[in-house]
Amino acid sequence: PSVSVSPPVTQSQRGYSVTYTSTEVCVLRGSTVDITSSYSYPGSVNRRVTTVQESFWFIKESNGVYVDLRSDPDYSGRVEYLNEDRKSTLRIRDLRESDSAEYKFRFVTNQDGGKFTGDPGVTLSVRDPQLQIDVRRSVGQFSTWTQLTCHSSCQLSDHFSYVWYKNGQRAGGKNYLHFDNISPTDSFDCTIEGHEQIRSPPVCESINLFYFNLKRKIVSVKIHPPGQIMEGSSVTLTCSSDANPAANYTWYKENTVISTEQNFTITNVTTEHGGNYQCEVQNRVGRQNTTKHLVVRLLKRFLCSVVLGVADDKDPNFPVSVYLCCRKAQREVS
């Protein structure tokens, strides 16, 4: 039950080739790993039928001398070859950290120069799980949920089963837990079945801290200047939060992102700027949002005209009459 983290790779030369199903494998200490290769060679050379005389895996080589893993004392009793037609699988049991190395497959035929090694080989990493728990939390108007996901330093195959503990009691067997409600007193940790001696650090403080904060509205929006927003003026919307850890801010208008800053400023306001503005606050343990409605009021407009009186021709000192006539524009508020 190994884990492939890279695509198959073929090494070839003059009709001889070795293909590894993966060139990088990560497994847990104490487990078993299978490393597989397939190989090919010419069916015949100069009318001489090709046969394989020897095939083996190795990690040690010096001056053309290769040490078959089956004869390596470091692997005594732990190595097995599973050979089929033009395919070889190396199985190593009871893996140790010292087994971390580059493993290569070599085969030798009856042809002159008919020897080939798949080089580079397969890099095996043996390690402890180094488990961590990722916390995701979503808070909405109608629903709130929390999801805990267990991660290993090795990308594990389906062969491995995760084990969850809630307040010290076994709670589940998937790599994640999902809750609609979670208590501020709960503590969680995870491990891998068969490796229960190694557990993740427990998570409780980050969940609890965010849980308590969510009991009150932790996101607020203020508009400056306060009061009526007049057409042609400037306005700043400020989003505030007491989220812990520190959060990132995103502003939306009609479901479109308009800013990723804490403050959003509009200059030369028009009626088109009116509407709902939503601020979303998000950190590694959750998210929350709030909406503010912005109303833009039009300036009162007047249409005015000037009317001049007629002077008295007989009296040059008679003043001219001036009249100012005004009426309101049709629209006042938007």
Rank of each mutant, 00 (worst) to 15 (best):
L69D: 00
P225F: 12
I207L: 15
H293E: 08
R96W: 03
C279T: 09
E254Q: 15
K300D: 12
N283H: 11
K166H: 06
G227N: 10
V67A: 04
F318C: 04
K253I: 05
K115A: 13
S153L: 13
N283T: 09
I35V: 05
F210S: 05
Q282H: 08
R301H: 09
A246V: 05
N244S: 15
C304F: 06
S240C: 12
T238F: 02
K222M: 12
F264H: 12
I182N: 01
S138M: 14
E61C: 07
P202A: 13
D85Q: 08
Q111F: 04
R14N: 09
D68Y: 06
S206M: 05
T109W: 00
V33L: 00
V310A: 06
I192K: 01
I182E: 00
V122L: 10
G227E: 10
Y176E: 07
Y103R: 01
Y41C: 03
E97I: 14
P201Y: 02
Q197M: 05
S40W: 02
S55R: 10
Q130E: 15
C325P: 02
S98A: 13
A243H: 04
G194E: 04
D34N: 03
T260R: 15
Y165D: 02
K253M: 09
N263M: 12
R297C: 07
V281D: 03
A311D: 07
D158F: 11
V126M: 10
E332A: 09
T149R: 15
Y20Q: 01
L95T: 03
L177H: 03
E84G: 14
E280C: 12
E231R: 12
L308V: 05
R106V: 05
R137A: 08
N175L: 04
G232K: 05
G172M: 04
V203D: 01
H293D: 07
D119P: 04
Q130I: 13
G194R: 07
P225K: 13
L237N: 02
C326N: 04
R48W: 06
R91T: 04
R287H: 12
F160M: 08
G113K: 14
P316S: 10
E54M: 10
S40P: 01
H224D: 14
N317F: 08
V221K: 06
S321W: 00
V79T: 09
D189G: 01
N276L: 13
Q130S: 15
I207R: 02
T19S: 08
K104W: 03
N263L: 09
S259R: 07
N289M: 10
R287N: 15
E272R: 11
F116C: 06
R127I: 08
T50L: 05
S76W: 01
K87Q: 13
V49C: 00
N289Y: 11
D186L: 02
A101S: 14
R297M: 10
V108G: 01
G286N: 05
E332L: 08
P245Q: 14
S220K: 13
C154I: 06
A247C: 15
L294R: 02
V5E: 01
I266P: 01
T36G: 02
V52I: 15
C304P: 04
R70N: 08
V285F: 10
F116T: 02
